[in-house]
Structures are given as C-alpha cells and as structure tokens.
Design a protein around this nucleic acid. Sequence first.
DNA 1: GTGAAAGCGCTAACAA
DNA 2: TTGTTAGCGCTTTCAC
Lengths: 411, 411
Amino acid sequence: MTGGTTAGGGATDPAGPHPEARTGPHPEARTGPHPEARTGPHPVPETGAHPVAETGPHPVAPERPRRRGVPTIYDVAQAAGVAPSTVSRTFSRPGRVNSETAARIRQVAAELGYRTNPMARALSTTHTSLLALVVPDITNPVFFEIINGVQDEAAEAGYTVVLVDSRESDRQEREALERALPIVEGIVLGTSRMSDASIRMIAKQRPMVAINRAVREIPSVVPDNSRGVRRALEHLGELGHDPVTYLAGPEASWADGMRWRGLREASLELAVHVRRLGPLAPTVAGGVAGAKAWLQSPTTGVIGYNDLVAIGFLRYVTSRGVRVPEDVSVVGYDNIFAADLVTPPLTTVATPRRALGAAAVRNLLAQIKGAHPRGGPPVIVPVKLVERQSTGPAPVRVPGAAASSSGLPAR
Amino acid sequence: MTGGTTAGGGATDPAGPHPEARTGPHPEARTGPHPEARTGPHPVPETGAHPVAETGPHPVAPERPRRRGVPTIYDVAQAAGVAPSTVSRTFSRPGRVNSETAARIRQVAAELGYRTNPMARALSTTHTSLLALVVPDITNPVFFEIINGVQDEAAEAGYTVVLVDSRESDRQEREALERALPIVEGIVLGTSRMSDASIRMIAKQRPMVAINRAVREIPSVVPDNSRGVRRALEHLGELGHDPVTYLAGPEASWADGMRWRGLREASLELAVHVRRLGPLAPTVAGGVAGAKAWLQSPTTGVIGYNDLVAIGFLRYVTSRGVRVPEDVSVVGYDNIFAADLVTPPLTTVATPRRALGAAAVRNLLAQIKGAHPRGGPPVIVPVKLVERQSTGPAPVRVPGAAASSSGLPAR
DNA sequence: GTGAAAGCGCTAACAA
DNA sequence: TTGTTAGCGCTTTCAC
C-alpha cells in the first residue's frame, strides 16, 4: 500500500551502496508462494483427525502469495540454509552465532535486500528505538540547540526522535504525547506546559527526564542558573554598575525563580544592589514593557530574564535615544542566535543547550537501560558569559549633575 | 522494562481522566495465568498423533504469566463476553459491529484501561501513523515554521512526526532517514542535502513530497519565488532604485536559481536593472562577504538571497558607515524571526512556511491514502512583501557629484 | 453481526 | 552453536 514499487528493497539500487546486490537473485523470482518455505510457526496439522481444521478450499498449497516483495528472516533463512532464529540472532545479538555462519547469512541477507522490520521486533521486545521530545514551541529560539543536542545524542545511540510540539497548549501537548507515548521508550521534556501532576502521571508510564525544570521525582538536567546570573552581575559590577535592574520573567517560570534567587545571593556576595522589575512576558514585547517601566527609574545596568526580553528592552530604549552601552549596559540570557544580530550585539549568558539536550538523552537512556528508575538531584550544566557590545563601563557620575546628554531621565 | 510501575495502565490513575477506572476490577487480579483465556491462536493439537508436537514440559497450564499489566483485546473480549475479533473491529472499524455490543465493549475497555497497541496494529496493517520530516538543520530559522506547519497538519490527521535532522550532512541524513524509513508511512522533505538520485531512490520506498525543491517525479510544494523577487524589485523600483544588486545564494541552490531567474524576468518587465553578485553562502557570513564585494561597485538597492545574507550585508555596510536605508536599501527573503530584530528592521519577502509545511502534509496524506502515486506540477504557495525600515527612497543623484556624506564610494 | 483461526515478522526459551 | 516452536497483540478472511 505504501510504496508500491518496492519489490526487493534496495536490491535494484542503481549505483547505490549495494553494488553486489544486482548479482543476487531477482527479487521478483521469489515472490511466488513457497509451500514449504515456512516450516516454522503454525504448521497445519496435516495428519490430524480434525477435518474441521483443514483449511477448507485450500487443498494442498495455501496459494497465499507472500504479502510483498519484502524479504523476511524466513526468506533469508531458507536461502542461507539455516533456521530463522539463527538469522534473527545474527542481527539482534551478533556474537551468539558462529562468525562464519553469520557472515554467510549477512551476505545472503544483503543479496536479498533484507532489512529487519522494526515493528515486528518491537512487538516482541517492546524496544522501539524511539524517543519523544516535547517542546512547547519549536519556534522559540531557545529550543533549537536543545533539539539538536537531543537528536545527536539519540542518533548516536541508534534512537530516532519523535517530535511533540505542544504549541504552547496543554491540550495539544497532552494529545500529541498521548499518541506518541505507546511507541516511545522514553521522554525528554524540553520544558513543558503541563502541570507537575500531569508530568508525574506520564512519567509513570515511561522513563522521562526534564530539561530546565525540576519536577519532584523526575530526573532533570538544568543549566547553572545561579552561576549564570552571578557572572552577569559580576561583569556589570566590574564595569562599575550599581544598582542593577533585573527584568524578571513570567511569574510561573521555574527558571525565573532560580535566576532571581541566584541574583539576590550574588548581590550580597558582590555587594552590588539588584532591583527586580516584572513579571514580564519572556518575549520581545515583554522587554519593551520592561523598558517602559525601567525609564521611570533607570539604572545603568540591566539584566534580562532572557535574550528576547533583553532585545526588546534594548530596542525600545535605543529608540528613545538612550545609548547602549554608553548610557545603559544590558545583559541577556541564553545566547540565542539573534543575540549576535541586534545592534549592538548583546552580551549574554550562554546556556549550553546542546549539552543540555545531550545530557538529558544520556540520562534517559541510562534509565531505559534499566538503571535506577528515578531520583538523584538535577544534573547541573555549566554556563558562561559571552561579552559583546551591549555592555560597557558605567557612565561617570558627575555628582549632583543630571544624567548626561542622552534621553536618560535623571535619577 | 520500560516503566516498571505501569500495572493496569491508567487504571489506577489518581484523579486522572478515567474517574470510573477505579471501580473496575483491580488489574493485579487478572495478572495470573489464564489457562483458557486464550482459546484463539495456536491451539495445542491435543488429539494429534504427533507426540513430537506436544509442548514438552508444559503438562497442562503454560504457567506463563501475562507479560505485563497491560490489557489486550483478549482481556477486553473475555470481560465483555465477546470474541477478540469483535473487540478489534470495535476499534478498527466502528460501524462493522452492533452499536450496543460496541458500546459495551468500549465501556469494558475503558474500565480495564485498554489501549490499542500501535506496534501490533502496525505489524499487521503496515499503517504506523508516523511521518518523517527531514530538515538539514533545525537551527536554521527558515525551518521553524515549516516544522510547525507539518506538525499541525499531521496532528490534525492523527499522525505523529518523526524528526530527521541531517545536520547538513549527506551521511547523517541518509542514516537517520534509513532508520526512520521502515516505520514511517511517508516523508516530507523540508529541503534535503541529498542528491536527486538518492531522493528518488528513497521515494521508491515511501510516498514523499519535497518542500522548496523540485525533483523530477517527486511531488513538491514551493513558495512563489518568482513572484517574491518580483515584488522585491518592484518595491525597490518604485523607490527609485536602479540598478539593484542581487546577493546570490549557493550555486547548487534550487531556490537561488528560481529567484535569479524571476529577477531577470522582472527586470525586463519593470525596466529596472539587476546585477548578480555571488555565489554566497546562505548565512550572515555570506552576507558580509557580499557586502565587501558590493563596496567595490555599490548600488542603492540590494536584494539578498535570504534574510541571513541580507542581515550580514546590512551589518557589515553599517559598520563601514554606510547608512541604511539612506544610502542603500536592502530587502531580504524569508522573513525569519530575526529580520524584525536587526537595526533597521529588514524589509523582506515573507514566505508562508507554515502553509508550505501544511500543504506538503496534505499532499503526502493524499498519496498515502492511495491517490495517484506521483506527478503533477509543483504546488505553488503565494508569498508577500513585508515592508520595514531597511528600504527607503533612493538617494537623490546630484549629477556629477560624488556619493554624499556617507562612506559609500562614488560610482 | 459475530466467532474461529491464520497469520504479520521477529524474538526467546528450550532442546539438541 | 543451532533448530524448534510458542508467542508479542492485532487484523482479517472465512464460516456461520
């Protein structure tokens, strides 16, 4: 039904990777019925005293043409003169079979264009080599690298990833996940819109690891948020900025909580004051809103909840005549692609998102391999500050003077 | 192996979506051996004259505990007092079963927490409800919306998408695709790194549709490239720019070919001269390279192969003191996320990538449903020009004078 | 409309 | 090491 013209798989491959394929028997040649080809399962009781069991209208040969041209272990087994199970072993646990036999089988298999059928394998092993990756919105730049990291690490281990994009909707996420759940062996949650309870429910059904979010009982890998904001503040502090405004993220955001907490701690350690402004939507628009509020009581240093917020801020204040970094220095968070594209390029905390994805998969695979099902503290992945042109020395404070030539209101 | 604690599926669901589940029989209660539970397949020939056929050490009850707590059609059938085949029909072809029986079966199934096993179903039907989406690089902004469009449309039809990221490598793409191929029903090629020949080979095995690339024999959906560049040129022409430079994309790019061709045609029609500069890498770096070359013989209007190129151009010339759009107007292509983030925001041709993805899936699904396997001209999706601040009136030409106060060299 | 039973292609005891 | 055989859970003729 699917391809139609598949007969023999890659056997007729023109100049393809199977140069020897064309010397093999023509696939069509073995498409007919093989009465005795399958002596294995479900033998017809040909001597039994049950006339009822006779296959009715089929006197001798079942005459049922093999479904397609696609060769099975039975075809290979027959052609190689071994049992189907030996063929199976050759591919599923190499080593458990005499190397010579194995070689011959592989050879024959190649000639026939045999490929193991993942569905059949999965049916008996429940091992699908499929992983689900859940992201709320592929469009969000933050996820690209995570997806890549997950992809790479999964591919490395022979796994394929099923993408579940929740489109920022609880329902969609649930439905898509529901659909994917039965076929995947594990789930990577690259930030989810679902409640902790829902997540835990799903985690009951499959191994799971969460990125960027700590859910009780669920293994997780998170970037070193506190270190990240600390580096940002340190950087700003060294440049002479004090106080510094933190453009806060969404109220419900776990990451925002972590960042703010880290900031307060760092504030004490580094003796740089920090103000919180928000909550803000984690978008460019959010940044614009933040900028407007900030103009009411500006500081020379600003740290955005993420790059989008920082970019929105930057664009708005710039449009109002505030110069960056001369009047205000701004630091973003995440180091998304666009951070290097805005004017001026944004200094930001780079979260190793690819590493995050990779670490998540490794953890997940370990769970699947049967290790301890759950537990352990979050895996913390290091971050680093990327200095670009949006930060610079704090403007010199002329005591008693108003705030310079820029559009920056006096404080 | 997977979950471990799955017993009964969602049956013990705390406050979950199956409130009635807890009133059902406790899953554990039926986990033991059911000697006569399965009268169906593979009956032991208990009266045959083949002692050899006797199941050896299993005298009466096979004592093999049901693999897991997960209920099957057999469990449902037994509980509902019908045959397994009826349960199967109830779920696979509703209508072919008495509505009352069906209702009862569904009821029982819900109580038991029965879910049909996709692998088993796939094994006998080859219908997996899986689609593969191939993209060369998820990190490339151009693909986000395509992915979303594909996702949405697929989900709509009850399909799940498997992501194949080729990481810009022929080999990786091939391997990943190879892995996904046997389980998917069709393939959406969102721009591929593979050769036409390889693509056609794969298309032999599964229905396929290509986005943004025309391969002979393969159905494709493409944005209206010629209309896009025409609109860009028209826009520039109206602003008085002539000649206009086209920052060309990679040599091998099909899209580049289309755009350049469209540009030449439009050039004639609109009587605006067009120069070609390239080939360039389709990246910011490519744009920078293009800018350097452009400085040798500048024009007041520039059209980039894509937004990345346009952005690179914009940034470089800006850094050299050329003002945009006062000295030079630049138009991008694609309308990626970052286009609105750069300074000045980029005027660009918006390609309806989400629509592209959706159209591709619809086409693919039609093929799968058994329509005409191949053929037909590419489906063309309309584009539109988004005017932002990177374009403006051409600078007034003071006859004989050098080129203004900017860093723009005289022509 | 419903039931019986034969597979789908592979894996996994168990026996040899 | 290899062969035999009973499933994995579902769909699907074919009878009734």
